[in-house]
């Protein structure tokens, strides 16, 4: 009986998938005529809020909206914006050369705070579910892996640190940097035979990094009146020491993600608390 039920179920699933497929394709290929729709060929960025993130003129846009009310939505490109030059513009609104980082940390920093909590809570859940997980011993790592692990570990960590320290200048940032360091920890687990989990140490680093992130936000609240404001000057765009607290936050995020993911992998590998 079981596979006929499986067949019937597969048919219904296929039916639903086809219906949803028609739904989505119909929605995608709607003609541009009646009503706003997903503009596929060349999406006109000036119709989107991100034009102000790119031109870094959000404050001007706020004043324009305050004066012109609903007409703002039709002519967004009339908002005054200063031209931005790598290495030259001083004290720009968000100051980080990498636009994506300026959105992730500066304009929409609250999402990233939420995001870090998601990772924090899921690794916590992982730890809760696997804390009596006994260590399953793998085949002995080959010579190359053992020596390679010891040799490569510092360089991978260095590369990870580089990625999240330069988060606001070059692509990559807190998350990929942290993951790279975590993969370095993974390499150690694979390489060393007698690898002992250092969970308490990672737990302390993790909570301190989280504390700095939330602390910076609260400092912003108490000094400038709203959470996560950039209270440090944003310096000249393009230099390492620029874009105020964005760099600091991204470093804190990088360390936190690194500590969390490595403790996650250690717990997943088993062997419990050390």
């Amino acid at each position: 009986m079981k596979n006929t039920q499986g067949m019937v179920n597969a048919f219904f699933a296929f039916l639903l998938v086809v219906i949803l497929g028609i739904f989505f394709f119909n929605a995608i290929n709607q003609p541009l005529g009646n009503g706003l729709v997903l503009n596929k060929d060349n999406p006109d960025l000036s119709k989107r809020v991100s034009i102000h993130y790119i031109l870094k003129n959000v404050h001007n846009a706020e004043d324009y909206l305050a004066q012109h009310k609903s007409s703002y939505f039709r002519n967004r490109d009339k908002v005054k914006s200063s031209n931005l030059e790598f290495g030259k513009t001083k004290n720009a609104e968000s100051g980080s050369a990498n636009e994506v980082t300026s959105i992730v940390v500066n304009y929409r920093g609250f999402d990233t705070l939420g995001e870090v909590t998601v990772l924090f809570i899921s690794i916590l859940g992982l730890g809760m579910l696997l804390h009596e997980n006994k260590k399953k011993y793998w085949a002995k790592p080959s010579l190359i892996v053992r020596t390679g692990a010891n040799f490569l570990f510092p360089f991978i960590v260095l590369f990870g640190v580089y990625v999240f320290v330069h988060g606001h200048l070059t692509p990559g940032g807190g998350f990929p940097g942290g993951t790279i360091i975590a993969s370095a920890a993974l390499l150690l687990i694979l390489g060393l035979k007698d690898f002992k989990n250092k969970l308490t140490m990672t737990k302390i680093i993790e909570s301190l990094a989280g504390l700095t992130f939330a602390g910076l936000g609260l400092v912003g609240l108490f000094t400038n009146g709203s959470f996560l404001t950039n209270f440090l000057p944003s310096g000249t765009m393009g230099l390492l020491v620029s874009s105020g607290i964005t760099a600091l936050i991204y470093i804190a995020v990088g360390i936190k993600v690194a500590a969390e993911l490595s403790s996650g992998i250690m717990e997943m590998n088993g062997g419990g608390e050390e």
């Binding site: 039920q5 499986g6 019937v8 179920n9 219904f12 699933a13 039916l15 639903l16």
Partner: peptide
């Protein structure tokens, strides 16, 4: 698993 997703789809 299988059975409940059929009702889900229906």
């Amino acid at each position: 698993g299988a059975g409940s997703s059929m009702i889900f789809v229906l």
